[in-house]
Design a protein around this nucleic acid. Sequence first.
DNA 1: TGTTGCCGTGACCAATGTATGATAAACCAT
DNA 2: ATGGTTTATCATACATTGGTCACGGCAACA
Lengths: 219, 219
Amino acid sequence: MRLLIVEDDVSLGPLLKKEMERHGFAVDLADNGVDGEIMGEVEPYDAVILDLGLPKRPGIEVLQHWRAKKNDVPVLVLTARDAWHERVDGFKAGADDYLGKPFHTEELLVRINALIKRANKQTGGTFKHGDITLDEERQCVVDATGTSHELTGTEFRLLRYFMHNPGKILSKTILTEHVYDYDSDKDSNVIEVYVKRLRQLLGKDVIETRRGQGYIFRG
Amino acid sequence: MRLLIVEDDVSLGPLLKKEMERHGFAVDLADNGVDGEIMGEVEPYDAVILDLGLPKRPGIEVLQHWRAKKNDVPVLVLTARDAWHERVDGFKAGADDYLGKPFHTEELLVRINALIKRANKQTGGTFKHGDITLDEERQCVVDATGTSHELTGTEFRLLRYFMHNPGKILSKTILTEHVYDYDSDKDSNVIEVYVKRLRQLLGKDVIETRRGQGYIFRG
DNA sequence: TGTTGCCGTGACCAATGTATGATAAACCAT
DNA sequence: ATGGTTTATCATACATTGGTCACGGCAACA
């Protein structure tokens, strides 16, 4: 899952980035409104964390621009606590959720996960599809036989994206974009290699190959 | 839009009901968890407002039961203010949004509308003609008997062009030009071969031959 | 009814995309 | 740094596909 954080506070931004990366997100960070807006237009993020008080361009404006251009990426807005009118404004500008500062990281994490699930039309706390259950907190997976496997970072990011988009054809390009962040440009067969590893863990049939098109996850 | 409110507070429930009805919703009200759960299962609501502190059965449990039964109606959870762990639990149980009590009605409205809007944004990438349904996203086709077939790239491109031009006579030259990007100078029988393959999948009569002129697709 | 040319069909192979094991490089905690 | 784990790359083996061909059949026309 790729995440964009737009936050100018130098003591908060990098901390958030690190924290979210620990939980298996590929994170890009922008420290002002203009950069943030462009990045949000160019890269295919699965969710955005947007501070409202930003230098160069206010967060509300960034959000409005995105929505005006039909960019409907899920956006969680960070606001000052108890400024409910500000939050209503944020909602009207197209935010999907908000969180008042200061906040607990765990709550932020849960909300981001909820946003992504909602965007992918999934429900439920334990992430399950078919016989396969993914524990997003412990980054491990339980297969059809009930055996639990620990996942490495990349394995987890890939499997999670698959499980959030079951039944869809996912091209290697798409998968690469959602598993890795901005700095990486892979023209290699990493995805093939990790698909193979996931198949070793979960069984051959869990991921189906569509030659020339991509892969399909089937629980 | 049909709305279910599950709220036991007699000073809040009826008020909410009235308020939401003023804004064009058809509202049912349940004042305990058991009734609420049953109503949510039986009636097709567009959204649910669910209080967590309920008599007879806790709201969290109601929500979990629904989700376990694959009932993915959008649910907005009402929680006590500042009980962030409670909100985390709510999200994990499958809530789509929450609101801390006390709240402003305007904010509740905005959120409910956002929820419904999101849920209705169904994307059906299927293309149907007669008994044949083409899934343009998964590149597969469902025939008259309900059997689903996967299509290879060329099969898909050809069938798609047929289905976008049903009833028309399509010459092999035309088909070649639309299935292949540039080189229409194929003096081969590729089209014949692929027409044959499509007929094998979907039945003889789906594509009719017009000797010397071309083919006609008939759903 | 015979001739002509278009179409249907199964077999076939080369091109292209994918799988996989081995290996090297990067990373991380001690 | 050190040892162990994770990640990426490469070379090669493998599988599917797209497209060709030869031949047999059928339709239209004389």
